[in-house]
Design a protein around this nucleic acid. Structure first.
Lengths: 335, 335
DNA sequence: ACCCAGTCATGAAACGATTCAAAAACACGG
DNA sequence: CCGTGTTTTTGAATCGTTTCATGACTGGGT
């Protein structure tokens, strides 16, 4: 029961393997009658193309890899959703890899993807230490587009949202609401998005002489938010508002606060980041900094294919989107 | 700047390609000194193995594919998370494919996966029409494990949760709370999980002479829940409780009701299904039927590797878990 | 009859790794 | 220095496609 190959099909149809290949790849180049005979043989034997052999010959796979920080975060699934249609309409396949905010996992994925000779890579790097690895891939002719990563002086295309500005928006909103002491929850600080959002927040706090307390978390998830809040509630003179590095953290914080009987927003306001669908459906609908998630994915894919098409004489482009604040109940002044 | 191959490494190190291969695959079989020389050459040239060639020779890839109904649904990401460690510790790689509840997309993925000669397949089929395609894969020696799919008389291993029982639990809970007219929201009915949950619910309603109204949706997401509720609010003599086919639908329904000023649970109770993390954090914490998601994934992967190991003389196993109801505010009797 | 232009089909040469029988290199006791 | 046994290395065959130069055949046009 060994898998049937083109050779078997060829024999069954009484033609050469070259002809079978042609039937599959340029059907118009083979005579009607022969084609029918070959197709019949294919159906008959239940023949299935061997992609490894195909790729080996082609030297390149049709796979576009997307490496994200956390597949369980709706922000990233939305980005992926945005990229998929474009990739597929270009005849590609998308594979999603989850680094889980872990550099070692990310590295493992990159090694594998390089061995697979992927067509291209969209990646949200865990932190700056990833740079050398990413360089390596693009040095080996695998085009890379950075997603949600600052328009730094990286030698790559990138799409990003201005996170410093996003941080400012959140902080300004809270300051306008009269808060004089704000907590920032998120981490680890090595994640660029976290650092930028905090930086923006800090700028505004300093400009407005508002006190800022930072609660670092080990990751950007539900759990982390809940735990950070526990810690915050322990301290005396506690902040009257928190700005969370993303919505998952914010939802965790919200739940933590509620469990401890702290009323949101009366006793503590919350602003999240990303504006995922769940934010609006939360126990207290969350104010959040919205990013154009699907568009981020779509644009990234577009840049990738542009780079592939332009080949050698391609100049990298860095697209930056502006975030906007969506105010909801979690920062309302009164009910 | 063509990619460097083993031949290049061999030349640089002054050995044959066979030796280079040995250094990579059975280092103990090659002399210390030679090995060092080869490794140096590899590092020097920045050589990267070509996985296509490897697979072609091996006849099989190391990839385990997981085909899910909706990657954006935390239920499935949790299942994937459960399966991953086991697969990776067995030297495999996981690739996640999203069928989006669409048979055509699912089919496209299956075709591709077969061409890729994947090591094995974990799949939650969209509906029964997928059966013949799945049969085809396993006929071609690709082991398949059905996930979250009834212990029917399929010729495969499977892991599942008793959805009929889950439906009963939900309905019983609502009946106990005194509801006499219940709505079921979910669809399409062709999805087995939906059908089973509805069946269980219907059984209980008939036993207790409780009226049941079904609102069919085109999919199992947020959006669908919100729209179904709009429709429900239109009808007179409206149900006092809804049972949603999953938590995403339930969260949508909750938002829809809230937007129309209907108080949950006083004017309308809600029970969801899956007990995803967001359920507990919802505007009104959701009562939900909990499934052991991670364990589902872990067990599925285990069954897959068992089947691979046992080879020819393998007998399929069907593991069924029991769901449990978690009661929260969305079905509370009073506040 | 002859040539030319199309159409189609062929078969061998890649692609890059793994495997394995056989050769080479080495060690060591006699 | 030989024979024997062990450790290393070699080189060719193989996996299943795609590609492309070459050749076979057809049907006009002159």
């Amino acid at each position: 029961m060994t898998t049937t190959s083109m050779k078997d099909v060829a024999r069954a149809a009484g033609v050469s393997v070259g002809t079978v290949s042609n039937v599959l790849n340029r059907p118009e180049a083979v005579a009607e009658e022969t084609r029918a005979r070959v197709l019949a043989a294919i159906a008959d034997l239940g023949y299935v193309r061997n992609d490894s052999a195909r790729q080996l010959r082609a030297g390149r796979s049709r796979t576009v890899a997307i490496v994200v920080l956390d597949v369980a975060n709706p922000f990233f699934t939305d980005v992926v959703r945005g990229a998929e249609p474009l990739v597929e309409s270009a005849g590609g396949v998308v594979t999603v890899c989850d680094s889980g905010e872990d550099v070692r996992r990310e590295r493992r994925h990159l090694e594998l993807l390089e061995e697979q000779r992927v067509l291209g890579l969209l990646i949200t790097p865990v932190d700056d230490s990833s740079a050398s690895w990413i360089e390596r891939l693009s040095g080996h002719d695998i085009p890379v587009v950075l997603v949600d990563r600052g328009a730094g002086r990286h030698p790559h295309c990138s799409v990003a949202v201005d996170d410093v500005h996003g941080g400012r928006l959140a902080a300004q909103h809270l300051v306008e609401r009269g808060h004089r002491k704000i907590a920032f929850i998120g981490g680890p600080a090595s994640i660029p998005q976290v650092a930028d959002r905090l930086a923006g927040c800090r700028e505004v706090c300093e400009e407005s002489a508002v006190e800022l307390e930072v609660f670092a978390t080990p990751g950007l998830n539900f759990q982390a938010g809940r735990e950070a809040v526990e810690q915050m509630l322990g301290s005396e003179d506690r902040p009257t508002a928190v700005f969370c590095a993303n919505d998952l953290v914010a939802l965790g914080a919200l739940q933590g606060l509620t469990m401890h009987g702290v009323k949101v927003p009366q006793e503590c306001a919350i602003v999240g980041y990303d504006d995922i669908d769940f934010a609006a459906a939360a126990a207290v609908p969350l104010s959040s900094v919205r990013q154009p998630r699907a568009q981020l994915g779509r644009t990234a894919a577009q840049l990738l294919f542009d780079e592939i098409a332009e080949g050698r004489d391609h100049t990298h482009r860095n697209v930056v989107f502006q975030p906007e604040l969506v105010a909801r109940a979690s920062t309302a002044l009164e009910l």
